[in-house]
Amino acid sequence: MQLIFNALIAGSLAALIAGGLSLVYGTLGVFNMALGQMVLFGGYITWFLHIQMEIPLLMSICGGALFGALLAWFTFEVFVNPFYKRHRFLPLVTTIALSMILDGLILIIFKSSPKGILQGLKNSVEIFGAIISTEQIALIAFTILILCSFAYVLHSTSIGRKIRAVVQHPQAAMSLGIRSPQLHRLIFISSGVLASFGGIFIGIDQNLSPVLGFPITIKAYAAIIAGGRGHFWGAIICAYLIALIEQLVVGIPLLPGGNYIPAGYQHSVALFFIIVFLIFKPTGLFCSRLRTA
């Protein structure tokens, strides 16, 4: 049971990040390789506001999310917008450049030592025999709330229908008067806000460290690719699946003699699993097909 709860916690973080990115990929067709650093910046700004400036937590979280939105907007205008219409693969490289710049800035501004947004001992409760902190329960609930809001917006509002139309067939959507460029900007900024919430999640649950940026990006994209690129719910399900695999790999005695796989291999095993899965199903778990006349 503890493993399932651990997977739920790790999966909620991944789902929060992968969900927004999946929409970005679906509408723009680009990968943002600076995502991990955007996640960290959201967390670090919240840490700075809460711990250094001693601003109340809720306001600090809003500050972190606002900074995430601004950073995402800047990223879109400078590193994505001038390139993705020329070739959708160009932002893959420009955002790699941005990831390096942000990595350098994080190291200069916040240094390499781990930073936690909430300091001191956390209150824990026992649910079905598993130990979980109240902060973790709040984070899982918040992720579910965000995902439900996304589901409502996507499936029950006018803007959601426009987003789905652009994801399904951009040219057809534009011919019906949907202003794709504005929609692209809005979705990119939303993904930045979700990413900064991911960073805040890490800062509250664990510690923020500059080395986390790159693995976060790769795991989020592994979920998107495995889920079927551009498929919002596929990415969410695969984010939870990857987290579950990571927990099961080290939590169940898989080696002969009842031995466990060392925790250090946790991430490698999950990534190899995704790679092997993609070899047999390159289109991902929930392949979305383009409708044509």
């Binding site: 959708r88 250090g264 790679i275």
Partner: peptide, 28 residues
Amino acid sequence: WLSVKLEPDALGVITLAMHIAILNIAIN
């Protein structure tokens, strides 16, 4: 083999993932 099977951008991400996974094994 992966380069033949996967879409170009998916290949980029998956090869980076392999880099991380291999480095992780080397360290552990």
